[in-house]
């Protein structure tokens, strides 16, 4: 854990694959990054139906992963936002003025592609 005075340069960063595996390990172990290349090798004897069921399971796993990743990114966004507020107020810098603070397209957020 970093001390309170830690700088961004001292962040102990995970790699993208580590983040992927850390989330996927609780969802579908067969889809961990190290397994992906030989994902069918361990199922050489399965029937077409079993294979189909497995693929359906993988699809659900990806949907669940995407939800978990979205939650992680939201949490990180919030943490960074807190850093920003603290840092700007410490330096007495007013929050940046934005002409259009919500320029994200006004479309319905597609929260769940599995629906």
């Amino acid at each position: 854990m970093l001390s309170d005075s830690a700088s961004p340069a001292e962040l102990r960063l995970p790699t993208g694959q580590q983040v992927y595996d850390a989330l996927m390990v609780d969802i579908e172990k067969e889809l961990l990054a190290g397994n992906a290349q030989d994902i069918d090798a361990a199922h050489a004897d399965e029937t077409p139906d079993q294979r189909q069921q497995r693929y359906e399971r993988y699809l659900e796993a990806f949907i669940n992963f995407d939800k978990a990743f979205a939650a992680l990114t939201a949490q990180l966004h919030q943490a960074v936002e807190t850093c920003k507020q603290n840092e700007l107020s410490r330096d007495n810098i007013p929050p940046p003025a934005r002409e259009d603070p919500s320029s994200v397209e006004h479309i319905l957020p597609p929260a769940d592609l599995s629906a």
């Binding site: 854990m1 005075s5 830690a6 340069a9 102990r12 943490a79």
Partner: peptide, 12 residues
Amino acid sequence: KGTDVSAVQEIF
């Protein structure tokens, strides 16, 4: 560089 990143580090 003086930014307190402990909350971010905790998440990682």
